[in-house]
Every structure is written in C-alpha cells, then in structure tokens.
Design a protein around this nucleic acid. Structure first.
Lengths: 188, 188
DNA sequence: CCCTTGAAGCAACTTATTTGCTTTAAGGTG
DNA sequence: CACCTTAAAGCAAATAAGTTGCTTCAAGGG
C-alpha cells in the first residue's frame, strides 16, 4: 500500500482509486487474470493508462493492492467453546480459502507486486489478528494459551509453505493435524 | 521447468539455453535485477528476443528458471556429530542464505514466474533432500529421528513464512529456537 | 474567493511483445 | 554417408505496452 497510503482521503484521487480497483475486479471476473493489462483496466475504469502507471507503477503492484483487499478476513473466527476447537475451525477455514485456486492466486499476487513487503506484511497481520481473537477468548476461559507467534509458526506457516511450495494433496485433515500437534504438546 | 524440460539435450537448444542463462546472471551482476529486460538479455546472449519469448514466455519465467538454479544447494550439510547439532547448523545456514537480500530475491523470482508450481516444488525438494541427508545420518547413529515432513513443517516452513511475509528481525537465534522446539519435545 | 498543489488528462515517443514466414541444424533413416 | 523431418532459431513487420513533458483540473487552505 505504499502509494495508496499517500492518497488524499476525500476527493478525486479516492474516486479514481475506487474505480480502478473496481475495474480490476470486474475484468478479473469477466476475462480472467491472465487477460488483464494496464490499458484494459484503464479503459474500464475511465482513466488514462498513465494515471495507473504513475500511481501504481505497473500491473503487478496494482494487482497486489487489490489482492490484499480480498485477503482481508470478513468475519471474526467462530466460537466453538474451546481453544482447540476454535483453532481447528479457524485453521480449516483458512486452509480452504487460501488453497483454493483463487486464494492461491491472490497470495501470489500479493507477494508479487510488493517491493517493500508491506502488502505481504498486511496478510500476515490479518492472520495474526484472527488468531489473537481466538487466543483472547481462550484466555478469558482461563485456558492455557500459546503465543500468537507460536500459532503462526506451527499452524499458519506450514499451511502457507505448502500452498506456495508444494500444492499437492492439501486438505483440512492437515490443518487439524497441525493444530493437534500444537494443543497436544502444549509447547511454550 | 515446464519448457526447459522439453529441450533437446545435446544441440543448439542447449547452447542457446546456456547462453541465455549466462546472460541473465551476468547482467544481474552488472546492472541489477531491475534493469533486466528481454531484449537486453537477448542481445547479451547473442540471440533474438523472439527466441526468448517463444521459449520462456516472459522475463518472469526466465528469471524463475535461473533463480531455481541458484537456489540449488552446493554442498551437503555438515556433520556436527548429532541430529540436533546437524539440524541447527543446517537451519542457520539456510536462514542466512535465504533471508539475505539476494536469497529473498531468488525465492520471489522462483515463485513468481511459475505458473504450474514446478519451480517452487523444486525449491522445496532441495530442502527436503538436504534434510534427508541429515536424518539418514542420525538414523545411522541410532538416534530417534522425526520425519522429513515434520522438519519441513517445524523448521523450513516458519523460516520461509517469515522471509516472505514478515521480513523483520530474523536472525540465526530464530532458527536455533525452531530446531530446539523440535528436538526438545521429540514430536511424532 | 482565490491561490497552491498534487494528481489527472493528453499526445508524442520509446520500448517491448507478438506473429508469419524463412532458415538452420540435430537426429533419425535408408 | 547423403537425405529427410522437424523442432527451434532468425528476421522483420505490425501491434501493443510503457514513458514522459506539458497542460488542465479540482481539492483544500488561506
């Protein structure tokens, strides 16, 4: 979000940004990600290509911004009554969303056009927030809780690693197994 | 390696591929990754741009191929006398290589221009091979060994996750801590 | 209400990418 | 060994993308 963050909040810039993002989403849905080009997006957004080049630099950075928006979780994690059950449910859903073809495409896009790593950092922050909610809830129940860091290392990282580097045979059982390994041995 | 794999082994194709790869490495060293373009690489390699476009599709796929080559480990893991020490040494070195700016760039490139995931899979296979050597050695000493999968989940995945998503404050202590968590509790 | 200023539009220009056709040379065949 | 076959390379023309200097617009501050 390097450039986006500098945008003036209320006026024309905001409208341009919104219409460009909307154009990306529409065209992605209509013709697929492969078919996107800057001039095409510009035309749909009613904007000149140079506006996009100047604000985003290139297609990848624009897609990265849009991808991060789509990776933002929409709902708080479900409350299943215990830390183990909450984490399990969250991890399963996370794995399912992220390992689906569209999820993987968003992750790749987010990483891709991200010179300074801020978009990738945002993705990780989303996961950390969700985990934080689960852990706070468990702490409220006086359960023993691992740290957010530990959950990131033991659950999130393996899932993401496999999605990115070994996309074969990923299923929700894997997510359950990771959570079990964590709650079972109660590390750290 | 989708396209590269189809190349006839001995003849002109192989020479072209070698000279294109060499051109990428030279130009990367001389002018930096940002400055690379297909026409530039082609000129250095003594080849027409259309050759590159037809064989690799675009600059990203070419860079991805080259990046994977550079991520291939060059030496077998050191033998430090015990599983814990071997894993620790390997993990430290892995983290240092991968988290250095050039290592991160190669990882990103490898993931980036990799439509079918085969280059990313190769990266993971390299790590798995190295770990396999360490584990075999430990088994030969009659030590209790975790599975390769476990080491990937508990050591490699967290390191890669942090490199890609949270590049702040990574040091060898982190690698040691991951290995300690694994050998200490002897999971699975 | 009028400046200031960052961002958008426009247009000319440069560079990259695609494509049809021709030529080359590796590898197999008689 | 000369001759085919064929995948891949070269070439060049055409299209498309990306860059840039300059002009115009409109939000926000005085």
């Amino acid at each position: 979000m390097s450039r986006k963050a500098m945008v003036r909040p209320g006026g024309r810039s905001a409208r341009v940004q919104a219409s460009v993002h909307a154009a990306v989403r529409e065209l992605e849905a209509e013709m697929g990600r492969e078919a996107l080009t800057v001039p095409l997006v510009a035309a749909r957004a009613g904007v000149t290509p140079s506006t996009i080049y100047r604000r985003w630099g290139d297609l990848q950075e624009l897609l990265s911004d849009v991808a991060v928006e789509r990776l933002r979780p929409e709902t708080a994690p479900q409350d299943k009554g215990s830390l183990g059950a909450d984490l399990e449910a969250w991890a399963e859903q996370f794995l399912e969303e992220m390992s689906a073809p569209t999820g993987r495409a968003y992750i790749r896009d987010a990483l891709l056009g991200d010179p300074d790593g801020s978009n990738a950092g945002q993705c990780s922050a989303y996961a950390a927030e969700q985990i934080d909610v689960v852990l706070d809830r468990a702490a409220g129940r006086e359960e023993n809780t691992p740290s957010v860091e530990t959950v990131l290392d033991r659950v999130v990282a393996p899932i993401m690693y496999r999605i990115l580097f070994r996309p074969e045979g990923l299923d929700t059982a894997y997510a359950r197994q990771l959570v079990a390994g964590l709650t079972g041995s109660a590390d750290r």
